[in-house]
Design a protein around this nucleic acid. Structure first.
Lengths: 225, 225
DNA sequence: TCAAAAGTGTTAAGTTTACACCCATGA
DNA sequence: TCATGGGTGTAAACTTAACACTTTTGA
């Protein structure tokens, strides 16, 4: 180690994951009822410590993988949290990431193992440390980003109905949208393609299924939901 | 130290500051021509290491203070940079912050001492490590934030002309704005107040000076420049 | 046959953009 | 007297918002 660095302090660094899912027309978060210390018995985000051999982004992916068994989940940085007393045990800095995943891909067995639960975003319980703050900021970022970039599709199945897509955005924004205006907008986006498949699960009549064609999407400024 | 934490890795954590100034109708960055290792002789952001006794935000303020002698400068998070090899010397994580300061408040003596220079944003030289990336992200955040929150005033004097305000926003966005439309917008914002003072430095005729009244501003959704 | 979700256009209101000239002053 | 930046309004284009009924089907 060079002398330049040797006099400096070193710190534990964690990543915490705000994991969004969409289910029954509502946003949910995957939260842990901690059966381990510190803060045993309380609700928290899934987290883990950064290791020497991985980047922060890799650590976030790893932590998510440990909980869900899923790779290639959409993730993005929320911010970093560096208050001295944020973790009452030891000083730990944390980088928060949010993830958007399809709730159907989540193995309930893994949930049990970690004592993880999908909790309605609206019914958010108190969380340990500064995790509530992290969640608030994550929602804010999600709202802004979802309105100008096609990331919402990560919360849906490959094929989805327009009603599902609309209720997803309603859940993200926390407000209802006009059906006809919504569909008009979607119709203008060439990269949201109608298939000839029909979903019968949501209605007797059935609704056409659509898909997001990421190849057709290239930072289209038309994207604005 | 509890056994829970003791098996985890610890890391050096730095803060790097992207310091914006506004001067002669152009955005500038305060950069160091490093006369110290590592990367001596190259351009970099002002940075420093996080210490045990301070939060990340405090560290950012301290680092800025060391360079400028200024307190109470507007600062905001840019992101957390955690690639393994980002600093070729040792593994160092970095939290980037941007700062908006009035260039007139900056003491040129301090600049000399640190070998710091105000560089036109448009003429940005190559920077060490991932600092260029940090700057790009900071500009992006600044552009978005300046368009919906009244943070731009931090780059101006307390009193400013509308021409100065307009050229500030033109510099931030990198595009020119229509003078009449711009002034129409400003006129609708009650918290940007016309004084009866006149600035003669920019024209023979002189221009009215305005001030930002932060007390009158309360997350006004009308703010959109 | 009826309940429940799917699907479909038009109009008014509001916002954004484009645009050109006169004013006041000091050198 | 003239060069320079300061200051001002209107109309067209475009975007957003509000709004209600018909269709299809399985139970």
């Amino acid at each position: 180690m060079s002398s330049f660095y040797s006099s400096k302090d070193k710190f534990y660094v964690a990543v915490d994951c705000i994991i969004f899912g969409f289910y029954q027309s509502e946003l949910h978060l995957l939260l842990l009822k901690r059966n381990f210390e510190p803060a045993k018995g309380e609700w928290s985000l899934m987290g883990g410590f950064l290791q020497k051999d991985e980047s922060l982004d890799q650590a976030a992916k790893r932590v998510l993988y440990e909980l869900t068994g899923l790779e290639k989940v959409y993730m993005d940085q929320v911010g970093f949290f560096g208050e001295i007393e944020r973790d009452p045990g030891e000083r730990v800095l944390s980088a928060a990431y949010y993830a958007l995943m399809n709730i159907d891909h989540y193995d309930p067995e893994l949930a049990k193992k970690h004592n993880a639960h999908w909790i309605k975003f609206k019914d958010l319980p108190p969380l340990i440390f500064d995790h509530t703050k992290m969640v608030e900021i994550a929602l804010d970022i999600l709202q802004r980003k979802a309105s100008t970039e096609p990331i919402g599709f990560n919360l849906l199945s490959k094929l989805f109905t327009l009603s599902q897509l609309q209720s997803l955005y309603e859940a993200i924004y926390g407000e209802s949208l006009d059906k006809r205006n919504f569909r008009k907008r979607i119709a203008e986006m060439d990269f949201i393609e109608k298939t000839d498949e029909i979903d019968k699960s949501g209605s007797r009549r059935g609704a056409y299924l659509y898909k997001f064609n990421s190849k057709a999407y290239r930072k289209d400024p038309k994207f604005k939901i």
